[in-house]
Design a protein around this nucleic acid. Structure first.
Length: 297
DNA sequence: AATGCTGACAACCGCCAGATT
DNA sequence: CAATCTGGCGGTTGTCAGCAT
Protein backbone atom coordinates (compact mmCIF):
# COMPACT_ATOMS: atom_id res chain seq x y z
CA UNK A 1 0.00 0.00 0.00
CA UNK A 2 1.38 3.36 0.97
CA UNK A 3 0.61 6.76 -0.28
CA UNK A 4 2.20 8.60 -3.08
CA UNK A 5 3.79 11.84 -2.00
CA UNK A 6 1.62 14.90 -2.32
CA UNK A 7 4.15 16.43 -4.67
CA UNK A 8 7.46 15.87 -6.38
CA UNK A 9 9.72 16.76 -3.50
CA UNK A 10 12.77 16.87 -5.71
CA UNK A 11 11.34 19.71 -7.75
CA UNK A 12 9.81 21.86 -5.05
CA UNK A 13 11.16 24.82 -3.19
CA UNK A 14 11.15 24.80 0.56
CA UNK A 15 11.60 27.38 3.22
CA UNK A 16 10.56 30.99 3.23
CA UNK A 17 8.41 32.26 0.41
CA UNK A 18 9.70 34.98 -1.87
CA UNK A 19 7.68 38.02 -2.88
CA UNK A 20 7.40 36.68 -6.42
CA UNK A 21 6.03 33.39 -5.18
CA UNK A 22 3.53 35.19 -2.99
CA UNK A 23 2.44 37.34 -5.90
CA UNK A 24 2.03 34.34 -8.19
CA UNK A 25 -0.09 32.61 -5.61
CA UNK A 26 -2.21 35.68 -4.96
CA UNK A 27 -2.69 36.32 -8.66
CA UNK A 28 -3.64 32.76 -9.36
CA UNK A 29 -6.17 32.53 -6.53
CA UNK A 30 -7.64 35.89 -7.45
CA UNK A 31 -8.12 34.64 -10.98
CA UNK A 32 -9.24 31.09 -10.28
CA UNK A 33 -10.25 30.99 -6.66
CA UNK A 34 -9.23 28.43 -4.09
CA UNK A 35 -9.50 25.12 -5.81
CA UNK A 36 -7.43 22.00 -6.17
CA UNK A 37 -4.33 22.64 -4.11
CA UNK A 38 -2.55 19.69 -5.63
CA UNK A 39 -2.67 21.05 -9.13
CA UNK A 40 -2.42 24.69 -8.14
CA UNK A 41 1.37 24.93 -7.98
CA UNK A 42 1.78 23.66 -11.51
CA UNK A 43 -1.02 25.82 -12.84
CA UNK A 44 0.31 28.87 -11.04
CA UNK A 45 3.85 28.20 -12.09
CA UNK A 46 5.06 27.65 -8.57
CA UNK A 47 7.70 25.15 -7.57
CA UNK A 48 5.93 24.45 -4.33
CA UNK A 49 4.00 21.65 -2.73
CA UNK A 50 0.24 22.14 -2.87
CA UNK A 51 0.04 21.88 0.86
CA UNK A 52 2.63 24.55 1.17
CA UNK A 53 0.59 26.83 -1.12
CA UNK A 54 -2.52 26.22 0.90
CA UNK A 55 -0.75 26.98 4.16
CA UNK A 56 0.84 30.10 2.77
CA UNK A 57 -2.49 31.36 1.52
CA UNK A 58 -4.45 30.53 4.65
CA UNK A 59 -1.90 31.68 7.17
CA UNK A 60 -0.38 34.64 5.47
CA UNK A 61 -1.83 35.84 2.21
CA UNK A 62 -5.56 35.58 2.74
CA UNK A 63 -7.09 39.05 2.46
CA UNK A 64 -9.34 38.61 5.47
CA UNK A 65 -6.49 38.04 7.86
CA UNK A 66 -6.23 40.41 10.77
CA UNK A 67 -2.59 41.13 11.32
CA UNK A 68 -1.20 42.61 14.48
CA UNK A 69 -1.23 41.95 18.18
CA UNK A 70 -3.94 40.05 19.94
CA UNK A 71 -6.21 42.17 22.08
CA UNK A 72 -6.96 41.45 25.70
CA UNK A 73 -10.44 40.34 24.66
CA UNK A 74 -8.98 37.91 22.15
CA UNK A 75 -6.61 36.61 24.82
CA UNK A 76 -9.43 35.87 27.18
CA UNK A 77 -11.54 34.36 24.45
CA UNK A 78 -8.73 32.05 23.43
CA UNK A 79 -8.23 30.97 27.02
CA UNK A 80 -11.92 30.36 27.41
CA UNK A 81 -12.21 28.45 24.17
CA UNK A 82 -9.12 26.41 24.95
CA UNK A 83 -10.57 25.46 28.30
CA UNK A 84 -13.62 24.23 26.43
CA UNK A 85 -12.09 22.74 23.31
CA UNK A 86 -8.52 21.87 24.19
CA UNK A 87 -5.94 22.05 21.41
CA UNK A 88 -8.55 22.27 18.68
CA UNK A 89 -6.88 25.27 17.13
CA UNK A 90 -8.94 25.27 13.99
CA UNK A 91 -12.14 25.36 16.00
CA UNK A 92 -10.79 28.10 18.18
CA UNK A 93 -9.71 30.01 15.10
CA UNK A 94 -13.20 29.65 13.75
CA UNK A 95 -14.38 31.79 16.64
CA UNK A 96 -11.77 34.47 16.12
CA UNK A 97 -12.42 36.24 12.83
CA UNK A 98 -9.26 37.08 10.98
CA UNK A 99 -7.07 34.76 13.02
CA UNK A 100 -5.67 31.46 11.82
CA UNK A 101 -5.21 28.24 13.69
CA UNK A 102 -1.47 28.44 13.21
CA UNK A 103 -1.36 31.97 14.54
CA UNK A 104 -3.41 31.09 17.58
CA UNK A 105 -1.40 27.97 18.21
CA UNK A 106 1.83 29.95 18.11
CA UNK A 107 0.38 32.67 20.27
CA UNK A 108 -0.80 30.13 22.76
CA UNK A 109 2.58 28.48 22.99
CA UNK A 110 4.52 31.71 23.28
CA UNK A 111 2.25 34.01 25.26
CA UNK A 112 -0.81 32.54 26.81
CA UNK A 113 0.86 29.51 28.31
CA UNK A 114 3.14 31.78 30.24
CA UNK A 115 0.31 34.06 31.14
CA UNK A 116 -1.67 31.21 32.63
CA UNK A 117 1.30 29.82 34.48
CA UNK A 118 1.92 33.24 35.99
CA UNK A 119 -1.68 33.18 37.14
CA UNK A 120 -1.03 29.82 38.75
CA UNK A 121 -3.16 27.97 36.24
CA UNK A 122 -2.07 24.89 34.37
CA UNK A 123 -2.38 25.81 30.68
CA UNK A 124 -3.31 22.30 29.65
CA UNK A 125 -5.95 21.48 32.20
CA UNK A 126 -6.92 25.01 33.26
CA UNK A 127 -6.78 23.85 36.82
CA UNK A 128 -4.82 25.52 39.60
CA UNK A 129 -1.20 24.45 39.46
CA UNK A 130 -0.94 23.93 43.21
CA UNK A 131 -3.82 21.51 43.05
CA UNK A 132 -2.02 19.42 40.47
CA UNK A 133 1.36 19.53 42.15
CA UNK A 134 0.00 19.32 45.69
CA UNK A 135 -0.52 16.37 48.02
CA UNK A 136 -3.79 15.55 46.32
CA UNK A 137 -2.10 15.21 42.97
CA UNK A 138 -3.51 11.74 42.58
CA UNK A 139 -6.99 12.96 43.18
CA UNK A 140 -6.46 15.70 40.66
CA UNK A 141 -5.07 13.25 38.17
CA UNK A 142 -8.02 11.00 38.65
CA UNK A 143 -10.15 13.90 37.57
CA UNK A 144 -9.68 12.93 34.00
CA UNK A 145 -9.39 15.64 31.43
CA UNK A 146 -10.01 14.42 27.92
CA UNK A 147 -10.30 17.76 26.29
CA UNK A 148 -7.41 17.02 24.03
CA UNK A 149 -9.03 13.92 22.73
CA UNK A 150 -10.71 14.08 19.41
CA UNK A 151 -14.47 14.37 19.64
CA UNK A 152 -15.37 10.83 18.55
CA UNK A 153 -13.12 9.27 21.14
CA UNK A 154 -14.02 11.77 23.79
CA UNK A 155 -15.03 9.88 26.89
CA UNK A 156 -18.39 11.43 27.16
CA UNK A 157 -18.41 11.34 30.91
CA UNK A 158 -15.21 13.29 31.36
CA UNK A 159 -15.67 15.85 34.07
CA UNK A 160 -18.53 14.06 35.73
CA UNK A 161 -18.08 14.08 39.44
CA UNK A 162 -17.73 10.49 40.51
CA UNK A 163 -18.93 11.46 43.98
CA UNK A 164 -22.42 11.55 42.63
CA UNK A 165 -22.01 8.37 40.65
CA UNK A 166 -21.90 5.60 43.24
CA UNK A 167 -22.67 3.10 40.56
CA UNK A 168 -19.88 4.50 38.49
CA UNK A 169 -22.38 5.02 35.77
CA UNK A 170 -20.15 7.44 34.02
CA UNK A 171 -19.97 5.58 30.74
CA UNK A 172 -23.64 5.88 30.36
CA UNK A 173 -23.63 9.35 29.01
CA UNK A 174 -25.31 8.24 25.83
CA UNK A 175 -28.51 8.18 27.77
CA UNK A 176 -28.15 11.85 28.28
CA UNK A 177 -27.01 12.78 24.84
CA UNK A 178 -30.25 11.94 23.08
CA UNK A 179 -31.89 14.85 24.82
CA UNK A 180 -29.68 17.07 22.80
CA UNK A 181 -29.26 14.86 19.82
CA UNK A 182 -32.87 14.02 19.71
CA UNK A 183 -33.45 17.56 18.63
CA UNK A 184 -30.94 17.13 15.89
CA UNK A 185 -31.55 13.52 15.11
CA UNK A 186 -35.25 13.85 14.97
CA UNK A 187 -35.09 17.04 13.06
CA UNK A 188 -31.88 17.04 11.12
CA UNK A 189 -31.88 13.62 9.58
CA UNK A 190 -33.77 12.81 6.46
CA UNK A 191 -35.38 9.62 7.65
CA UNK A 192 -38.94 10.77 7.52
CA UNK A 193 -41.71 8.23 7.47
CA UNK A 194 -44.78 8.53 5.36
CA UNK A 195 -48.05 6.74 5.47
CA UNK A 196 -48.76 4.50 2.52
CA UNK A 197 -52.29 5.81 2.08
CA UNK A 198 -51.05 9.18 1.00
CA UNK A 199 -50.67 9.93 -2.68
CA UNK A 200 -47.11 10.68 -3.83
CA UNK A 201 -47.75 14.41 -4.18
CA UNK A 202 -49.01 14.59 -0.62
CA UNK A 203 -46.07 12.58 0.58
CA UNK A 204 -43.70 14.90 -1.18
CA UNK A 205 -45.40 17.90 0.30
CA UNK A 206 -45.34 16.37 3.75
CA UNK A 207 -41.69 15.53 3.35
CA UNK A 208 -40.96 19.07 2.32
CA UNK A 209 -42.77 20.38 5.35
CA UNK A 210 -40.93 17.98 7.59
CA UNK A 211 -37.68 19.01 6.00
CA UNK A 212 -38.52 22.62 6.66
CA UNK A 213 -39.38 21.91 10.27
CA UNK A 214 -36.15 20.01 10.67
CA UNK A 215 -34.28 22.93 9.25
CA UNK A 216 -35.93 25.32 11.65
CA UNK A 217 -35.30 23.02 14.58
CA UNK A 218 -31.69 22.73 13.55
CA UNK A 219 -31.39 26.48 13.58
CA UNK A 220 -32.90 26.65 17.04
CA UNK A 221 -30.59 23.91 18.15
CA UNK A 222 -27.64 25.81 16.79
CA UNK A 223 -28.75 28.86 18.67
CA UNK A 224 -28.85 26.90 21.87
CA UNK A 225 -25.37 25.65 21.24
CA UNK A 226 -24.29 29.12 20.47
CA UNK A 227 -25.62 30.31 23.79
CA UNK A 228 -24.03 27.43 25.56
CA UNK A 229 -20.64 28.56 24.46
CA UNK A 230 -21.44 31.95 25.83
CA UNK A 231 -19.37 34.01 23.47
CA UNK A 232 -19.57 37.70 22.96
CA UNK A 233 -21.92 39.19 20.42
CA UNK A 234 -19.40 39.52 17.63
CA UNK A 235 -18.39 35.93 18.07
CA UNK A 236 -21.97 34.84 18.00
CA UNK A 237 -22.27 36.61 14.71
CA UNK A 238 -19.31 34.78 13.27
CA UNK A 239 -20.78 31.57 14.60
CA UNK A 240 -23.93 32.07 12.64
CA UNK A 241 -22.11 33.09 9.55
CA UNK A 242 -19.80 30.16 9.50
CA UNK A 243 -22.03 27.28 10.40
CA UNK A 244 -21.92 25.78 6.98
CA UNK A 245 -18.51 24.19 6.91
CA UNK A 246 -17.35 20.94 8.34
CA UNK A 247 -15.33 22.42 11.15
CA UNK A 248 -18.47 24.06 12.38
CA UNK A 249 -20.40 20.88 12.18
CA UNK A 250 -17.78 19.39 14.42
CA UNK A 251 -18.18 22.31 16.74
CA UNK A 252 -21.83 21.55 17.04
CA UNK A 253 -20.67 18.57 19.02
CA UNK A 254 -17.94 20.34 20.88
CA UNK A 255 -19.97 22.89 22.81
CA UNK A 256 -21.92 19.93 24.00
CA UNK A 257 -18.75 18.41 25.32
CA UNK A 258 -17.75 21.79 26.51
CA UNK A 259 -20.81 22.02 28.60
CA UNK A 260 -19.63 19.00 30.46
CA UNK A 261 -16.69 20.82 31.91
CA UNK A 262 -18.02 24.25 32.52
CA UNK A 263 -21.15 24.28 34.57
CA UNK A 264 -22.25 22.53 37.70
CA UNK A 265 -25.77 22.26 36.42
CA UNK A 266 -27.50 19.53 34.53
CA UNK A 267 -26.68 19.48 30.89
CA UNK A 268 -30.18 20.06 29.64
CA UNK A 269 -30.34 23.20 31.71
CA UNK A 270 -26.93 24.20 30.56
CA UNK A 271 -28.02 23.86 26.98
CA UNK A 272 -31.17 25.75 27.61
CA UNK A 273 -33.62 22.88 27.34
CA UNK A 274 -34.64 23.18 30.96
CA UNK A 275 -34.78 26.11 33.26
CA UNK A 276 -34.06 24.46 36.58
CA UNK A 277 -30.75 23.28 37.89
CA UNK A 278 -31.57 19.61 37.57
CA UNK A 279 -34.12 17.87 35.44
CA UNK A 280 -35.48 14.44 34.77
CA UNK A 281 -33.58 14.07 31.55
CA UNK A 282 -30.33 14.09 33.39
CA UNK A 283 -31.43 11.62 36.00
CA UNK A 284 -30.11 8.15 35.38
CA UNK A 285 -31.76 4.88 36.11
CA UNK A 286 -30.33 4.87 39.61
CA UNK A 287 -31.92 8.16 40.42
CA UNK A 288 -28.67 10.03 40.38
CA UNK A 289 -28.22 13.15 38.36
CA UNK A 290 -25.60 13.63 35.76
CA UNK A 291 -24.22 17.05 36.11
CA UNK A 292 -20.95 18.73 35.64
CA UNK A 293 -18.85 20.81 37.79
CA UNK A 294 -16.20 23.15 36.42
CA UNK A 295 -12.74 21.74 36.13
CA UNK A 296 -11.40 24.42 38.42
CA UNK A 297 -13.97 24.02 41.14
C1' DA B 1 32.27 43.40 18.61
C1' DA B 2 31.41 38.56 19.27
C1' DT B 3 28.84 35.04 21.20
C1' DG B 4 25.04 32.76 23.24
C1' DC B 5 20.27 32.76 24.65
C1' DT B 6 15.44 33.43 24.10
C1' DG B 7 11.13 34.56 21.98
C1' DA B 8 8.31 34.83 17.99
C1' DC B 9 6.49 32.99 14.09
C1' DA B 10 6.60 30.91 9.46
C1' DA B 11 6.85 26.61 7.51
C1' DC B 12 7.21 21.63 7.42
C1' DC B 13 5.89 16.88 8.60
C1' DG B 14 3.11 13.08 9.53
C1' DC B 15 -1.28 11.55 10.35
C1' DC B 16 -6.25 11.24 9.74
C1' DA B 17 -10.95 11.41 7.77
C1' DG B 18 -13.76 11.78 4.01
C1' DA B 19 -14.18 11.54 -0.92
C1' DT B 20 -13.22 9.31 -5.06
C1' DT B 21 -11.89 5.63 -8.11
C1' DC C 1 -15.05 -3.11 -0.68
C1' DA C 2 -10.37 -1.87 -0.94
C1' DA C 3 -7.05 1.27 -2.64
C1' DT C 4 -5.93 5.77 -3.46
C1' DC C 5 -6.31 10.78 -3.38
C1' DT C 6 -6.98 15.11 -1.21
C1' DG C 7 -7.66 18.58 2.13
C1' DG C 8 -7.15 19.61 6.70
C1' DC C 9 -5.26 19.42 11.36
C1' DG C 10 -2.01 19.50 15.24
C1' DG C 11 2.70 18.97 16.67
C1' DT C 12 7.23 20.16 15.79
C1' DT C 13 11.17 22.37 13.73
C1' DG C 14 13.89 26.04 11.53
C1' DT C 15 15.06 30.64 11.19
C1' DC C 16 15.66 35.20 12.45
C1' DA C 17 15.59 39.31 15.34
C1' DG C 18 16.39 41.27 19.71
C1' DC C 19 18.64 41.16 23.97
C1' DA C 20 22.09 40.00 27.56
C1' DT C 21 26.63 38.85 28.72
Amino acid sequence: MGRSPCCEKAHTNKGAWTKEEDQRLIDYIRAHGEGCWRSLPKSAGLLRCGKSCRLRWINYLHPDLKRGNFTEEEDELIIKLHSLLGNKWSLIAGRLPGRTDNEIKNYWNTHIKRKLISRGVDPQTHRPLKEIAGPNANAAASHLDFRNSSPPSFPVAAGITAVNQPNNDVHNFATLQPKTESVEDANCTSSGTTTEEEPPQLQNRRQQQQQQHRQEACEISELNLELSVGLGPFQAESTRLSFGNTAESKLQQVPFQSAMVTQAVCLCCHLGFQSNGLCGNCQNSNGFYRYYRPMDS
